[in-house]
Each structure stands twice: as C-alpha cells, then as structure tokens.
C-alpha cells in the first residue's frame, strides 16, 4: 500500500539560478565505462534525485562533483567554480559550501559527537569563540533532535541516530549544497521516513540545493523536485516522480515495480 504523502513535507520550489552544472561527464575504471556524456543542471533550492541500479555510477557522480574522484573528461561547475580545474586550496574553500552525507555516515569514531561537529568549524571558522562553537553544535544537534547525544561516542548510537548526527555535521557549516549518498539505505521504514522528512525540513529552512542518490522510492518521492534516471552511464530519463511513474518505457517502469 502506498503511503500518503504529507503536503507540508513536499520539497520547496526551486529558483532559476543554476548552482550545479554538469556537461559531457565521462568516467571509466579500466574498461568499465561508468559515466558516458552525463549532463545535469541543479537550480538553487532544488532537490534532484539520481536513481539507478547498483554499480551504475551514482556515487561516482557525486564524488566527482565534490572532487573526490577526477573525471576523465567533461565539465562540473559548482557555484561558479569549475571543479576539475581548482587547486587544493580553492577546492577546500568550495567544499565548505558543499556538504556530503556519506552512505556509511563516516563519523569519526575516535571522537565524541561534539568533536565530530566541532571538527569542520574549528578548521574553517578559526575566529569563532568556544562559546559560539558550543551554540552552533547544540543548534545543529537540536535540528536533528539529538541534543542529548552531544557527549556520546558514535559507537553508542543506533544506525538512525548516526545518520542524524552525520546530517547535523553536514549542516553545521551552513552549506549551500548537500550531496546525499543513499541517505536511507540500511534504515527501517520509520527511521527512513524520519530522515526523509528531516531532509525536506532542512531544504526549506536553509534553502539548500541537493542531489540525492537513492534506491528508496519513498524517500525520492518525498524529497525530490526532479528525478534523473541513470542508466548505462547516461541520464536516461528525467522528470517529476509522477511523470516518470506513468512512463511506458520498460527500463523506467522497472524502477517503479
């Protein structure tokens, strides 16, 4: 039975300003061509979900956007910066404005929740006082409903709590863009829905743009303004959830079964 979507949790409407522009992106690993002439534009405030089979290159795509993987060719323009041509210093400055939520959460397990959140702040906002840092950390954790976990270690948290803390860590630098790598994978349906709602709340509150890599159609339906279907390394189909769900194309229909 399909879950009825709460209208208040619909993603916010995007503006016309393009914050991510990808054109002619190619990436291969040996003989395996993962991305072939991939193109995508993301507007400010827009949430774009990229769906596709496992190993289709979705995670590679967002790792190229953040500069973790160098593409073979093509252009990736993020907030007016050509990522492939940035040196390390400029790339680090750009990364402050672009947050990345890892599938595995990637919390630093030798640090407490507080230290995990303080880590990027202490590096980039060096003039911030300890009191200001404390306020920002508590605010970020309150946003995800986990203020009480501030002095706990990541190993003491459940999967859903870790995902929320990781989300709080991505929010703490007030990013303009958030890249989500399978944000609801491995979570139970209730927690997955909570995380999806949280993503919508964050987008509305901070007007962030986002790219969401996911297999979870409920999450995609709730969080995305637009869906891009990545098949054979190309954007095979694009559109709103409802448009694609009515498609007669076999490959598109397979995702909605």
């Amino acid at each position: 039975m399909e879950t009825k979507t709460d209208i208040s949790k619909q993603p916010a409407v995007a503006s016309t300003e393009i914050v991510i522009s990808i054109a002619g992106l190619h990436k291969s690993f040996g003989s395996n061509k993962v991305l072939r002439d991939f193109c995508l534009d993301v507007k400010r405030g827009e949430s774009v979900a990229v769906i596709g089979k496992s190993g289709s290159g979705k995670s590679v795509l967002i790792k190229c956007i953040i500069g973790l993987i160098d593409p073979d060719s093509g252009s990736i323009n993020v907030l007016g910066n050509e990522v492939t041509k940035l040196d390390h210093i400029k790339l680090d400055r750009l990364r402050v404005k672009v947050a990345f939520l890892f599938q595995s959460n990637a919390l630093y397990d030798s640090m407490t929740v507080r230290e995990n959140l303080e880590f990027p702040l202490r590096r980039h906002w060096v003039n911030t006082t300890k009191e200001e840092v404390d306020v920002l950390v508590v605010e970020a954790l309150t946003n995800v409903g986990l203020a009480h976990t501030i002095d706990m270690m990541p190993s003491e948290l459940s999967g859903g709590m870790r995902k929320r803390v990781a989300l709080a860590r991505t929010l703490i630098m007030k990013p303009e863009i958030i890249l989500y790598d399978e944000p609801t994978t491995g979570l139970d349906p209730i927690t997955a829905r909570e995380i999806s709602n949280l993503m919508v709340d964050i987008q509305k509150k901070y007007n962030t743009s986002s790219i969401i890599i996911s297999h979870d159609l409920n999450c995609v339906k709730l969080t995305a303004n637009k869906i891009v279907m990545l098949i054979d390394g190309k954007n095979y189909a694009e559109g709103k959830y409802e448009e694609l769900s009515k498609s007669e194309d076999e490959k598109v229909k397979n995702f909605y079964i």
């Binding site: 790792k63 953040i66 680090d92 990364r95 890892f102 595995s104 630093y108 590096r123």
Partner: peptide, 21 residues
C-alpha cells in the same frame, strides 16, 4: 589498523570533503 579502518569507513573521504587535508 586505525587509518585502514578510517579509509574503509570513508572517514578519510569525510575529512577531505570537509575541507581538511
């Protein structure tokens, strides 16, 4: 072991994307 564990759990990548070398 520590750095290896950080690598396979993407903690090193997380550090990099947070703008820390």
């Amino acid at each position: 072991a520590e750095l290896g564990s950080m690598k396979v759990t993407e903690q090193i990548d997380a550090m990099e994307v947070s703008g820390t070398n």
